[in-house]
Design a protein around this nucleic acid. Structure first.
Lengths: 339, 339
DNA sequence: TTGAAAGCGCTAACAC
DNA sequence: GTGTTAGCGCTTTCAA
């Protein structure tokens, strides 16, 4: 009932139908130089009639696959959704396709996903805060243009797009100080060896610096958790149950903030919580979470453009940083209601 | 500074290093029949040393690509994230890779994404409630095993995995009736011609049937909106501003419900809102949204298994339906607070 | 401007 | 149990 019955139409079929050579069809396909309008017309007609679609595999073997890859670490984080949308839009109108590889949890996270993309012979790839070492990525970038997204460890071998996490965090801390907070805790994801200079690293160190500068070094408190709503909830809950509660919690990103918020509400404590990324829900009246906004769509689109520029010949690395914007919102929450 | 310097290692290199033929290496790679343990050892060693990774493109040309594709219509919907996780997990341990194609908005939505996956010569693909016609999908399924996820239009040509949307919606409606609601509106996404028997179609018709059966045919009210938080917010807001308000709104899924909830809160109206899918945030104390839970991870994993079974030779279609579970939660919300 | 032919890296069929 | 060989569908010289 399934499996290959009809053979797929090949470039050969198109060539025969149009009465030209395979090479001619190939040229039309890539609108390469040296095809008469007349021939292009006939070939296009044949392609249309036969409903021909070139095999990415075959193309990838000789030339390019016309495919860009993007590695995403965590689909739970809605910020990445924005990045994806931006990337997708920037590709519309080109003849490039986007494929995504999910980096499942576990130590070898980013490596496997990026390797999978490389195995597909993508023409370029965007790695979103990948948990891979810089040298490894540089070696990979020799073969395939790479845009590192989020991390701040710039390299002459690959381009980077990142938000100014330092400025964003500083603005957020200042906001909390202005509100009178002195005992501010920081909830961040577990430290991953290879993720030096990750956004979360910068946010953490900036948090610490701000505390120190404000003369609150003694109040520094860092809590680690796994990625996601539940791990952040549990970590925050444990913190609240263990020691003296802080008056505010700054989370590494909004999803963690939401998890922490759940713990805060369950305990009925008057603790302010703030996040990062300003995901769509942060502005919802139900949530109204203070956060730091990043232009995710623009950043995603720019990452794609950088790749396209590389494919067009650029050979010096570019590093772009986007300014974040503080989104001050509610700071005190009602305790949990029924259910 | 970039671009190909070192040639990638090929099967040839491995063969030479191990002192065997390319065919031998190929067999080891696929752990095919007829390789002595001794040879396997030497080949594995060479692969390891050379850090060899087979080219998916080259493999796809002759045999299989060892790649499964999944088309996802909307990353804003966190239910799909669960499905993805399940699919990803089911693949761990196999030598298959997962690649995702995003179906951007626009009319040709699903087609482009699925075609992109087919162009990559994936060995099988999961199409998540795609907006494509049944015949088109059947034709595609002749070439490549397909699991249709979500939609209920079963076919002898492809497998399906779906939730029992009818039962889920009925349970939800009953819950609202029990609570005394009579004027219940339904907020659903815009009707797409080719999406007959989509989950949203079923939810809509079940809503209507429940209303009729309860003798409330006159109170039926269906509002359409685009996908996402903002479109659903706007649609709900317009509805509230236009006519007499319902006492409850049943949304096609949680994201739409959240959008509607924003409108309800802004208007300060005592309207109950319910969603579908029970996304992680629905259970958050801040949100506490009544919803219908579906075992997304199991469903995603099962879809992958079905594909694997097809690749292993099964040739009759299978159709699996998963029972949903009502998650009754809070029904009245406070009006919006400052900011 | 067009076409012929070589070959990308792999697997499958078959010979040894 | 192992190697030889013929292509898969394209792109890319290079000659016509």
């Amino acid at each position: 009932m399934a499996e290959n019955e009809a053979r797929k139409t090949t470039i050969e079929d198109v060539a025969r139908a149009a009465g030209v050579s395979r090479a001619a069809v190939s040229k039309v396909l890539r609108n390469a130089y040296g095809v008469s309008p007349a021939m292009k017309l006939r070939v296009d007609k044949a392609i249309e009639e036969l409903n021909y679609r070139p095999s990415v595999a075959a193309r990838a073997m000789r030339g390019s696959s016309y495919t860009l890859g993007i590695e995403i670490p965590d689909f739970g984080n809605q910020f990445f959704t924005r990045v994806l949308r931006g990337a997708s839009r920037a590709l519309a109108g080109t003849n490039y396709q986007l494929i995504i590889a999910p980096a499942e949890e576990g130590m070898r996270q980013g490596y496997r996903a990026i390797e999978a993309l490389l195995d597909q012979r993508v023409d370029g790839l965007i790695a979103v805060s990948p948990l891979v070492s810089q040298e490894w990525l540089e070696r990979a970038a020799v073969q395939t243009p790479i845009v590192m997204f989020g991390r701040h460890d710039e390299s002459p071998y690959y381009d980077t797009v990142a938000g100014d996490d330092s400025a964003g965090t500083a603005a957020l801390m200042q906001h909390l100080f202005d509100l009178g907070h002195q005992r501010i805790a920081h909830l961040t994801i577990n430290a991953l060896s290879s993720a030096a200079r990750s956004p979360h690293d910068i946010r953490l160190t900036t948090y610490e610096k701000c505390m120190v500068d404000a003369g609150l070094a003694g109040n520094i408190r860092v809590i680690r958790c796994g990625e996601g709503l539940d791990p952040s909830y549990e970590a925050a809950r444990d913190m609240l149950d263990e020691g003296p509660a802080p008056t505010a919690i700054v989370a590494g990103h909004d999803e963690l903030a939401l998890g922490a918020l759940r713990a805060v509400m369950e305990r009925g404590l008057p603790i302010s919580v703030a996040g990062y990324d300003d995901v769509p829900l942060a502005g919802h009246p139900l949530v109204s979470l203070t956060s730091v906004s990043q232009p995710g769509e623009d950043m995603g689109a720019r990452a794609v453009e950088m790749l396209l520029e590389r494919l067009a010949g650029r050979d010096v690395a570019e590093h772009e940083t986007y300014a974040p914007e503080l989104r001050p919102r509610k700071t005190t929450y009602p305790p949990a209601r029924e259910s």
